[in-house]
């Protein structure tokens, strides 16, 4: 009888490990430094070598030095009713954020002062693509482009092939929220962007050329549930693309143990540059963003605020 149980266990183990990355493994998460406390919601981040910059809460710009294992926080002139949202890093080294919905703000760098540029309409998203600021309008009629690019202060042009999708059963505000776009970090010349309900990425070059990659094995979120759930199950929470095109994805996944209030996703998945699955890892604790990734290892910011390394 014991032999039979062992045999069945061995068969189950072989089956689990031979599924070509379909069965999540449990990796080790090793804390490097932290915690970086009281971050609040992270609305954008930029990675430049060993330096990571986060837009956190209503008005905090957090700079993390991965080499020196240090971090510092600067408070920006934003407020709860006029919060800073998103972060765009351009090739010229400038950093930009949305201040409220009606202006973009260039953040102070070395020898630079804060600069605010008004926008002609309400905007809800900002990203950086090479030398171009990418902005997302607050009003998104179905079929219209969702992203527009410009050099700061110049005329805007539709950017990428991403278009607003119709959600006929939802109110206008909810439909607009589901058409908001997130973008991750890339070491290639393509920026990974995605809609909140879709397990797919649009990889967009600075010129706007777009290729869509479907992320096999991640769930499609029902729009009604996404907009209403207390802890929305998001197929894609953050993305990091390595220099060789390998795509790292944080997905909400399934919490281990009781549902936690700690922010972050529990599943870390890797895909090849054309979306072919490489592996999936169930994390022992939730992680919020990927700070760096290469050769099967990733440095992440955990829900508890630690900078930790995910090891195979």
């Amino acid at each position: 009888m014991t032999r039979l149980v062992r045999l069945l266990a061995a068969v189950a183990l072989v089956a689990a490990t031979s599924c070509g990355g379909r069965s999540p493994s449990l990796p080790t998460l090793v804390a490097r430094f932290g915690p970086i406390a009281d971050l609040g919601t992270i609305s954008g981040h930029v990675v430049k070598g060993d330096k990571v910059i986060l837009m956190a809460g209503d008005a905090s710009l957090v700079r993390i030095d991965l080499q020196a294992s240090t971090h510092s926080t600067m408070t920006l002139p934003c407020s709860t009713g006029n919060r800073c949202w998103g972060l765009a890093g351009l090739n010229d080294g400038t950093l930009w954020t949305l201040k409220g919905m009606h202006s973009v703000m260039q953040l102070p760098g070395e020898g630079q002062a804060l600069r605010e540029v008004p926008l002609e309409a309400a905007h809800l998203g900002i990203h950086g693509a090479g030398s171009r600021l990418v902005l997302q309008p607050g009003t998104l009629p179905a079929g219209d482009p969702v992203l527009y690019a410009e050099a700061p202060g110049a005329m805007r042009h539709p950017w990428s092939t991403m278009r607003a999708r119709p959600f006929v059963t939802l109110a206008t505000g909810a439909a607009a929220a589901l058409n908001l776009v997130s973008c991750g970090v890339s070491r290639t010349d393509e920026l990974p962007c995605w809609f909140p309900d879709e397990p797919a990425l649009s990889l967009i070059s600075e010129s706007g050329a777009t290729r869509v990659v479907t992320l096999e094995g991640l769930p499609h979120a029902a729009p009604e549930l996404l907009i209403n759930a207390r802890v929305p199950q998001r197929p894609v929470r953050d993305v990091f693309v390595e220099a060789d095109g390998t795509i790292w994805v944080i997905s909400t996944g399934t919490p281990i143990g009781a549902a936690s209030e700690v922010p972050g996703g529990w599943l870390l998945a890797r895909y090849g540059r054309r979306g072919e699955p490489i592996d999936r890892r169930q994390l022992p604790e939730p992680v919020r963003i990927i700070l760096r990734a290469a050769h099967g290892r990733a440095l992440v910011l955990t829900g508890a605020g630690m900078v930790s390394e995910v090891q195979p």
Partner: peptide, 19 residues
């Protein structure tokens, strides 16, 4: 009414986009 919808979208983005 339109402004109310925009404010809702602005509020909801924290839930569905923030990390």
């Amino acid at each position: 009414g339109l402004d109310c919808e925009l404010q809702f979208t602005n509020c909801a983005r924290i839930m569905i986009l923030g990390t």
